[in-house]
Design a protein around this nucleic acid. Structure first.
Lengths: 225, 225
DNA sequence: GCTTATCAGATTGTATACATGTATACAATA
DNA sequence: TATTGTATACATGTATACAATCTGATAAGC
């Protein structure tokens, strides 16, 4: 199934895509989809061969991803998919609660009819999704669509990065069958409150949603070590 | 457990400083001190010559700084010191208020005697400082010392980046004579509330401090364009 | 047996050289 | 005069080559 998604990266008048961008996007996507696992090493030569380029633009891409918190670079040792411990996961989730409820509260008064419809249609799509990768992508799109009306680009970028660096753990051990129903119900609660223009309620549901996610991540994360 | 994860790298501490780090730190400092002005171009060759290295590690440093929001990179055009507009300044200040009051509230219960003394001594130093560069550095150190006891490294890094990307505007047109007294008084208010372990009051004073800073930045920023 | 030393192979870091894109100045044209 | 096209200089992007560093396995020492 092919879905039309809103363009994710706000490109400042870029006419074309540079090699480092292409590589960074590939790695970012692979990490989001858990095709590249936490702790896994990313070898420059291997990536360079895969894209038919030299290691220099690959290094640029890895630096970029380091800035987004997806990759850790150790001098003379290499690049590794970031693998935060439980405490760091908690820390990032608390930051997400802070920033995402903030963005949502700003967004609620600004929602247009089209923006509501986009959110609704994304939820409808979520119902019929069975595999992790698609769920992850559409879930991401739904949350992005929720916050987008706040119109604060730097805030949205920050939220994107924080989500990206921890959300993959939610999809690592769990299957859509297990988390699907809870997630969908919570998403609908949030959206409904937004449609009623009740920012405080929406933020409350969002916080509950995130705290439940954190609890699930914590429970499986403890097993993983 | 189906998936086996590689062991986490145990050594995040860096024994030595790499060339890109040295260059990044130099540029970062120069931007903080307003020796490099907003909008100014950073040429790779020039920086490479200055440090006696090639452009490759310079490029690494610029990528790093891009991730911190201090530098904007335009493909085939070059690197420029970031020059946020008034709306972006407002946005970042709101984020700072959100994150810094959050960190401070977490920090207040954790303060040790030594940490209070560090804050006090930094304020004492601030009294006898007359030039912008020193003021900026010690002001930065005071705020960092305020939030450090929250012990959340990722949060602290985020705050540092946000401060760095906008705080320099506060020192761009104003002189210590003009902003010194207000700043010092507000800093003392905040610290005193912390010492009384009154987190809510401390956060309130901090927010007022930041809002006044924003107002000053806005007033001169409008002139600067 | 356990720890430490050592060395080859592999991987990253950087310098150099070349390719490509961009900006400035000037000429050509309407 | 204003606009468009073109040449040149310059800065950035990337490939290649080489140097520095790390890893892992084997050997030496206690």
């Amino acid at each position: 199934m092919i879905l039309e998604m809103p363009e994710r990266i706000a490109t400042p008048q870029l006419k074309y895509r540079t090699a480092p961008e292409v590589v960074a996007e590939y790695i970012r996507d692979a990490i989001y989809r858990n095709e590249l696992l936490p702790g896994q090493q990313l070898q420059q030569e291997e990536l360079a061969l895969k894209f038919g380029i030299s290691r220099i633009p690959v290094r640029d891409a890895l630096r970029q991803l380091q800035g987004e918190g997806l990759v850790d670079l150790y001098p003379n040792r290499g690049a590794f998919v970031s693998n935060p411990g439980v405490e760091e996961l908690r820390e990032v989730f608390e930051l997400r609660i802070l920033l995402e409820t903030y963005a949502l509260k700003l967004a609620v008064p600004n929602f247009t009819k089209q923006e509501f419809e986009l959110c609704s249609s994304l939820l409808t799509h979520l119902e019929s999704v069975a595999n992790r990768a698609d769920w992850s992508r559409i879930d991401q799109a739904f949350h992005a669509a929720l916050y987008a009306p706040c119109k604060q680009s730097r805030t949205l970028t920050l939220i994107d990065n924080l989500r990206g660096s921890v959300n993959r753990f939610y999809f690592l051990y769990l299957s859509p069958e297990s988390y699907g129903p809870d997630c969908l119900r919570e998403h609908r609660q949030i959206l409904k409150a937004c449609q009623k223009r009740d920012a405080v309620a929406a933020a409350g549901f969002l916080e509950a949603h995130l705290r439940r996610s954190l609890a699930e991540v914590e429970s499986v994360s403890a097993v993983g070590r």
